[in-house]
């Protein structure tokens, strides 16, 4: 059995992080820094905003926290379900699988790129809401925490779904959407969780968007269901859970 020392662990961790960053940088260069992808990322929350405003579901200012939550959900989990199947088809994914890194580093690298993209889009929405709607803010650190942790959480979710062994992005996107769209309605984004039927409320507790939305709502209007530590802790639990499941699935489907 190979011996394990502290310096060995440090070396291994550093190797994994360097590799994860290299994979993230590659994804950003190839898939995210495209004018169409960035414009699409910004237009999506704009259209959602217009749809909900036209439907008079709430005042424009009240819509902003939920809009940021949905934006992180969709932007962070949108590219890996497309890029990974394409890389399988081009056999470039085999290059990553054969590199001297663990699957954890691979999954983290793929998720980091989703995180970067999601942060970029969320900042655009945040600044636009601040400048155009002059949205009042109660606690900026809560909004930052909400955007940061939810982006990583949903990016890892996207990477998890991308483990499905297909070379066709459509197969994965349709699966992701089956999860993403219901989350909007059961996570307190536009419909308060307290008004949901009891089954809906129970499901809300196992939705990461519930905790992300709670942090962001708290940052804007000070109203929160949970203590911020609970929200952050739950999002960390979801990130670790998605990372573990993704790791298992990539290993299982490599054959």
């Amino acid at each position: 059995m190979p011996s394990i020392s502290l310096s060995g662990i440090e070396d291994r961790l550093s190797r994994e992080l360097v590799a994860a960053w290299a994979i993230a940088k590659k994804d950003v260069l190839i898939y995210y820094l495209r004018p169409g992808v960035i414009v699409g990322g910004v237009l999506f929350p704009l259209f959602m905003f217009l749809a909900f405003t036209a439907g008079k579901l709430a005042t424009p200012v009240a819509l902003v926290p939920g809009l940021i939550g949905i934006t992180t959900l969709f932007s962070a989990s949108s590219i890996e379900p497309v890029s990974v199947p394409i890389e399988r088809r081009m056999a470039t994914f085999d290059r990553l699988l054969a590199a001297p890194i663990s699957l954890n580093a691979l999954v983290l690298g793929e998720s980091l790129s989703g995180l970067i993209y999601s942060l970029l889009i969320a900042v655009v929405v945040f600044v636009a809401a601040l400048v155009i709607l002059m949205t009042p803010i109660t606690n900026i650190p809560l909004i930052v925490l909400g955007i940061l942790f939810s982006s990583l959480c949903f990016a890892t979710l996207g990477t998890l779904f991308a483990a499905y062994p297909t070379e066709n992005p459509g197969d994965i996107i349709s699966m992701v959407n089956v999860v993403r769209f219901p989350l909007i309605f059961i996570s307190g984004v536009f419909i308060p969780i307290a008004t949901l039927p009891s089954v809906g409320q129970m499901i809300a507790y196992i939705s990461p968007l519930t905790y992300a939305n709670d942090l962001i709502q708290g940052g804007y209007n000070g109203k929160m269901m949970f203590h911020p530590i609970v929200d952050v802790a739950m999002l960390i639990v979801f990130i670790l859970l998605f990372q573990l499941i993704a790791n298992y699935l990539y290993k299982r489907f490599n054959d």
């Binding site: 290299a22 085999d94 290059r95 001297p100």
Partner: peptide
């Protein structure tokens, strides 16, 4: 070296080399 030329066509030759090297730290 895989049977298929599995290089990233949207990156430059240099960027491909740098990526491969970074994976080996």
């Amino acid at each position: 070296v895989s049977e298929i030329s599995n290089v990233y066509t949207d990156l430059t030759g240099w960027q491909n080399m740098m990526l491969a090297a970074q994976l080996y730290r």
